[in-house]
């Protein structure tokens, strides 16, 4: 069995615990990164890396646990910065944005900050990056590892909105574009919140049937990609997690943070369900279903 012990998030939410729907567009509520990252380390970190490191530490990252990160797009800003520097084929370009552009920069920096020599990985499967990362983490716990840190991080850039607009997304959809990081410490030690299932699907009907079969008291549904397909409707109380964290490729990590806060009653205004199922839809291609319950 796998249990969630702590979660953390950087998001558009004004408060850490009392979650509420947000009007978009909305900027993230960035913490004071200097509280836990040294200025020397922070100098070169891009936004995604800062968010990832802060959120990982906040969730209780330690030296002796595997670190597993999901990120749909990686370090976009540094990728753009390095590309921009290549224009006109100059002889000399700065290596810093290239180093920082690697998709595993956040997971590597978390390990570096903690001198953590354990398993370190980054999953990059578009909108289900967090779910496949979480499955990897649950596999570690189920094969004897005592605790694992799992999270998701994605950043936005103006170019992303420019591409979205050029490809025909509505202003309302573009307003939802967001960013953030969310991490969870999962463990075999019992806590008040059990993480029962996490599965990914390449077929919509399979995903819906699996989610329905779980009979959760509350559904958190949302998109991790352009909202081109309607979300399925489920029986029982349903909240759209996009209303709470906006749209980015690893926002289902925030949804798990939300489920944990609801089940442990750290957020009190969203009901008192005994179980929560997260249904994450990426276009019509990939689906993630995650199920937690009170223990």
């Amino acid at each position: 069995m796998v249990f969630i012990h702590a979660t953390s998030a950087i998001s558009v939410q004004a408060e850490q615990n009392q979650l509420q729907p947000v009007t978009f567009p909305c900027a993230i509520n960035a913490p004071n990164y200097r509280d836990c990252i040294s200025p020397a380390n922070m100098r070169r970190m891009g936004n995604a890396v800062k968010m990832g490191v802060w959120s990982a530490l906040e969730a209780g990252a330690s030296t002796d646990e595997p670190i597993i990160v999901g990120s749909g797009m990686g370090c976009l800003k540094d990728s753009e910065k390095f590309l921009e520097s290549l224009r006109g084929a100059p002889d000399i370009v700065s290596p810093t944005p290239f180093i920082q552009s690697t998709h595993n920069t956040a997971s590597g920096q978390i390990a570096l900050n903690l001198s953590n020599h354990q398993y370190n990985i980054t999953h990059v499967q578009n909108g289900i990056s967090f779910e496949v990362a979480l499955m990897d983490g649950m596999l570690w716990i189920n094969s004897g590892q005592s605790a694992v840190l799992v999270g998701g991080v994605d950043e936005k850039t103006p170019l992303l909105s420019e591409i979205g607009a050029a490809l025909g997304l509505s202003q309302e959809q573009l307003d939802f574009f967001s960013e953030g990081a969310a991490f969870a410490k999962i463990s075999k030690e019992v806590s008040e919140c059990e993480l029962v299932e996490c599965e990914v699907f390449a077929n919509r009907e399979d995903a819906i049937a699996f989610a329905e079969g779980l009979n959760a008291h509350m559904m958190l549904v949302g998109n991790s990609g352009p909202m081109a397909h309607e979300l399925p409707s489920f029986k029982g109380e349903t909240l759209n997690f996009n209303d709470f964290c906006g749209l980015h490729m690893s926002n289902s990590a925030f949804a798990l943070h939300m489920a944990f806060l609801i089940l442990t009653q750290k957020t009190t205004k969203l009901g008192q369900p005994d179980s929560v199922c997260i249904f994450n839809q990426y276009l019509d291609r990939s689906f993630g279903v995650t199920y937690c319950r009170k223990h």
Binding site: G74, N104, S107, T122, H123, I128, D136, V200, A202
Partner: peptide
Amino acid sequence: NLYNTTLST
């Protein structure tokens, strides 16, 4: 139709 992921390290 199968489980799939991509790793990038």
